[in-house]
Amino acid sequence: MKGVQPMTAAIHLPQLRVELATTPQDIYASQRLRYEIFAKEQGAQLESAAEGIDRDHYDDYCHHLLVRRTDTHAVVGSTRILTTPNARKAGSFYSENEFDLRGLFPQLKGNAIEIGRTCIHPDFRNGAGIGMLWLGLAQFIEMHRVDFLFGCASISMNDGGAQASAIMQETRANNLAPAELRVRPLMHLLPTVPATKINMPPLLKAYLKLGAWVAGEPCLDPDFNVADIFILLDVNKLNTRYHRHFVQGSLKRNTASDTGLLRAA
């Protein structure tokens, strides 16, 4: 991979471990999981679908963070990290394909990374998978002295946008970024009657509890049939109490299982 260095050490738990990909085979395993989740489960239209993987231009410039089962070594969680220097080499951040970020970058005083293509195998969606990814992200943030983390959190549009509308109503009231930190979507959602009950996606819920902002209105991604919300986390204002709870909860869930195959929520 271009400009990518491995983590100094993997974090190990009895059932799961988190580590950075160091070989092409590791990245391929991540791309296979992404294909299984995004294309087969969620119906995304991928240019690389014929290969049975989810692959794009940015993969060669990203760090790929993997969660593996310790017994089978299968990849059950994945996200990718794009640093600012590698985004320059790639030509842009991935988010710039969906949002106008030109007004945001001058406001970010410090080192920023982008998180994307996050997915968790269904058997690990009880919080353990995301918890393990956050363990890895926290280590990466510390190692690389990261000040800001941003990226897209997706909401399914299978209901026509009712959930996206309801979630945005709530986040506008409680989690909206200051005006100078907001971004503009390149493809707006059509107005939709909000759902009466909110079903917050686990990744978005985790980021909001960690103290992330929603930095403006969502963007429609027709290929993935989702509404993407741009999230921005100031690491120096991280909700440390929830961070400890989130990480410790993940550790407890992992050590509670003898088989390592955690049930989906």
Rank of each mutant, 00 (worst) to 15 (best):
D26K: 01
P24G: 07
L101E: 09
A87W: 01
E142S: 11
F150H: 03
R125H: 11
N97T: 11
D258A: 14
A10L: 14
D54C: 02
L262S: 05
F246Q: 05
C119H: 04
A164T: 03
K205P: 05
I130C: 04
A195R: 13
V146I: 09
V235L: 08
L208K: 07
K89E: 09
F38L: 07
S30M: 07
E217C: 10
A264N: 15
K40G: 04
A112N: 06
L251G: 02
N239D: 09
G129M: 03
T83M: 08
N86M: 11
V226K: 04
P222S: 12
D147G: 05
C219G: 10
N86D: 11
P191Q: 07
I229N: 05
V75S: 00
A227V: 06
R263Q: 14
Y58F: 11
G211P: 07
P202L: 14
R241N: 14
T259V: 14
H188K: 15
K209S: 15
D26I: 02
W134Y: 07
N199P: 08
K89R: 10
A153Y: 01
F150G: 00
Q163I: 05
N158G: 05
L133I: 07
D26N: 06
Y35I: 02
G77C: 07
W134R: 02
G136A: 04
D223I: 13
G127D: 04
L189Y: 11
R263H: 13
P201A: 12
